[in-house]
């Protein structure tokens, strides 16, 4: 049993107990144990084909990255808000371009692409060959911010050993 699966089971037990709220009903506890065992079995079957190596380490680094991402989301949301309410002063300039990414692991790439999509103003369209990412941006400025590579280097630092 890998450390990833142990984390998953512990998290699922806490999740079930919190959401159900009945800690002494044997029927509900049995159902919960059954669901958790089923989920863990399915996850282990997935993991046999796509092993996740450094996930638990990244899990601990996630809160620091998440708080940075939150500030980034607020800033980019304000940019999009300006484009919506004052279209003459802040005109949009939609761009479709390829952005390099330096992540090695699949989880790192997924986190980077999801962060790009989560911040309003940029959406990752698809992976290109050679470690590149096709991105659609609402303004040319947000595309330039993305190409400066601050978010990219932060995600890459997260997957370091």
């Amino acid at each position: 049993m890998s450390s990833y699966l142990r984390f998953l089971v512990a998290g699922l037990i806490g999740f079930w107990l919190l959401l159900s709220g009945y800690w002494d009903n044997p029927l509900l506890l049995t159902l919960g144990a059954f669901s958790i065992a089923l989920t863990a079995y399915l996850a282990s079957r997935i993991e046999r084909h796509y092993p996740l190596k450094s996930v638990t380490r990244m899990l601990f680094r996630l809160p620091a990255y998440g708080s940075w991402l939150l500030i980034e989301v607020i800033k980019t949301t304000l940019d999009v808000t300006k484009c919506v309410w004052m279209p003459s002063r802040y005109p949009i300039s939609p761009t479709l371009d390829v952005v390099p990414m330096t992540q090695k692991t699949r989880v790192g790439k997924t986190i980077y692409a999801n962060s790009i999509t989560l911040t309003p103003g940029t959406v990752s369209v698809r992976f290109e060959a050679g470690g590149h990412l096709l991105v659609h941006a609402l303004t040319a400025d947000s595309m330039d911010d993305l190409k400066a590579g601050v978010m990219d280097s932060r995600v890459t630092a997260m997957e370091k050993q």
Partner: peptide, 9 residues
């Protein structure tokens, strides 16, 4: 594509 940006706000 630009509507997606507004939706993600």
């Amino acid at each position: 594509y630009s509507r997606v940006h507004a939706g993600s706000v």
